[in-house]
């Protein structure tokens, strides 16, 4: 923070030299250190983080897992042909879809879209919701009434899925970025509420009063003292939301308002396979399983982190 050091260098030097930082650092270490020790022993955490790592690798390097093309179909491979479950990892492993494209190849190549939507929506809502919640909680008064009492409640009042559909309807071609923006548009309210709640408690803490008394600037108090201590509940909600947003993208695709066709995603494949649900269930079943496992991994991770950070659960 270079500009702030210029504004009040002495006050900050005193502040750094005096009690709070040392005590704070130790306290912070113990909370996160404790949580980490707890997490390593939690099977839910281990399983979900391994799953997520594998998914990230698949999303980054789909070519490592299949050589079949997800976009070129050959009608020689009829979709009614049963999947050859013994040929693990080959193009015909999970069968073919109506266009004769390998379901397995599309499964692997569709990972990236879901992961990108999940991560980018989560980053967007954490930044937007986090800022709004932090400002509302810290300043209180009419700013809180406006940001939390009015704006957050207004965006929260509109049903999430419906609002996203209305936004997406106006786009004829929908890329992952368009879908992410549409989901973030109404999706930030929960983080804002959680952040506001955390800030309301933390701003009463002694180290915040001390920093104020020493003349620290508002932005320094917010970003050095309040933000790091308010992050725990936000991280938990953000992790769980990541799974929920991935699921929302697939739901929008099912409703015909998610990613549009040249894009490869599980949601697109599931909605495409519904027409064949009576004759060739494998077309929609495998993307559904993959999607559910991914969502489950993020929700499990969030739950594990919550239990580790919440001393009441011990």
């Amino acid at each position: 923070m270079p500009d702030m050091t210029k504004t009040a260098p002495e006050a900050e030097a005193i502040e750094d030299a005096l009690a709070p930082p040392a005590v704070k650092a130790e306290k912070a270490r113990s909370l996160w250190g404790d949580a980490w020790a707890d997490l390593r022993r939690n099977p839910y955490f281990v399983v979900s983080s391994v799953l997520i790592l594998v998914l990230l690798v698949i999303a980054a390097f789909p070519g490592w897992f299949t050589s079949a093309s997800p976009t070129t179909g050959d009608l020689v491979h009829h979709y009614l042909g049963k999947p050859e479950l013994s040929k693990v990892g080959s193009a015909e492993w999970l069968g073919y879809d109506v266009q004769g494209r390998s379901v397995y190849a599309r499964l692997i190549h569709g990972t990236r879209a879901s992961i990108i939507v999940g991560i980018s929506v989560t980053l967007l809502v954490t930044v937007i919701g986090g800022l709004i919640g932090m400002i509302a909680g810290y300043f209180g008064g009419w700013i809180d009434a406006l940001l939390s009492g009015f704006i957050t409640n207004v965006f929260f009042g509109i049903p999430f899925l419906l609002g996203s559909m209305v936004v997406l309807q106006s786009f004829t071609s929908r890329s992952v970025w368009v879908v992410s923006l549409a989901l973030a548009f109404l999706g930030w309210t929960q983080i804002a509420r959680v952040m506001r709640g955390a800030v309301l408690t933390i701003k009463q803490a002694d180290y915040v009063h001390a920093a104020k008394a020493l003349g620290a600037s508002t932005s320094r108090i917010l970003f050095r003292h309040i933000l790091p201590n308010a992050m725990a509940p936000v991280i938990v909600v953000a992790t769980i939301s990541l799974g929920v947003f991935i699921s929302a993208e697939a739901t929008l695709s099912y409703l015909g308002l998610g990613l549009s066709s040249p894009a490869i995603s599980w949601g697109v494949d599931i909605s495409g396979g519904i027409a064949q649900i009576r004759t060739a269930q494998h077309i929609m079943l495998y993307p559904s399983i993959m999607l559910s496992i991914t969502v489950l991994a993020f929700i499990m991770l969030g739950e594990a982190v919550r239990n580790a950070l919440d001393p009441k659960m011990r």
Partner: peptide
């Protein structure tokens, strides 16, 4: 409960419709 939360509603719905209904 975690599994129910993780499976999208439209998948649950379509599968139940297929199994119980069809």
């Amino acid at each position: 409960t975690l599994i129910v939360i993780a499976i999208p509603v439209f998948v649950t719905g379509l599968l139940l419709q297929l199994l119980l209904g069809v």
